[in-house]
């Protein structure tokens, strides 16, 4: 069964009140929505909040979704819209110390520094951060999905359906070239 059919079936069962199917849908798609929100430049706290809000909206509109197979695209679109609204809001938050650290890292949102204990991951992050927003967004979503449903991702990101494969290849090739030229990536220790 392809990914979109499987997720569509989960949505239909969730709509009929099956909690287990709803839980599975959350487990399957949460990592993708997290990447989408982070790709829009949100802090970790805001991204977590936007992902939740998106699911609450899905639940509210679950009977309005005409094509259950399109649930991935629906959720990606909704997460991007929520993220955009969140960013636009006048944020007068008084940041705590973690927030200050996050804000000091540029460009793009920094991953949790604790996961970057591996030198090669640090090298990867450095080069990954140099990619365009679009490349980072697309690669981080594709990397998260076991069997990427390019149609759903394209629809969610507002890209032409046929362009996802070539864009992914181009972004990956660019990153690969930078990495292979970096001695820090080549060293296996």
């Amino acid at each position: 069964m392809s990914a979109d059919v499987h997720l569509g079936a989960l949505l239909q069962r969730a709509r009929d009140g099956d909690r287990e199917s709803l839980r599975e849908l959350v487990h399957e798609l949460n990592p993708v929505l997290w990447r989408v929100a982070r790709g829009q430049g949100l802090s970790a706290d805001d991204a977590a909040d936007v992902v939740q809000t998106t699911w609450l909206e899905l639940l509210r509109r679950i009977h309005e979704i005409r094509t259950p197979r399109a649930v991935t695209a629906w959720l990606i679109t909704a997460t991007r819209r929520e993220s955009w609204h969140r960013r636009r809001r006048d944020r007068r938050d008084v940041p705590d110390s973690d927030g200050v650290l996050d804000a000091a890292v540029d460009p793009g949102p920094a991953p949790d520094q604790r996961v970057l204990t591996d030198e090669r991951d640090r090298v990867l992050w450095r080069h990954f951060a140099k990619l365009s927003d679009r490349c980072r967004e697309l690669l981080s979503i594709v990397a998260e999905v076991r069997r990427p449903d390019y149609g759903a991702i394209a629809a969610g990101l507002g890209m032409p359906h046929g362009s996802i494969g070539p864009t992914r290849a181009r972004c990956l090739a660019k990153l690969r070239t930078m990495l292979l030229a970096d001695p820090g990536w080549g060293r296996h220790d």
Binding site: L22, V26, L59, A110, D112
Partner: peptide, 30 residues
């Protein structure tokens, strides 16, 4: 490379729990 990207900035471990708690409502039209 893709595996490495997946390791960068993963979703917080409690994200699923927070979402599932939030949507476990009897009344969803709020």
């Amino acid at each position: 490379i893709l595996e490495g990207i997946a390791r960068l900035d993963p979703a917080p471990p409690d994200l699923d729990e927070r979402v599932l708690f939030a949507i476990e409502l009897d009344q969803v039209d709020a």
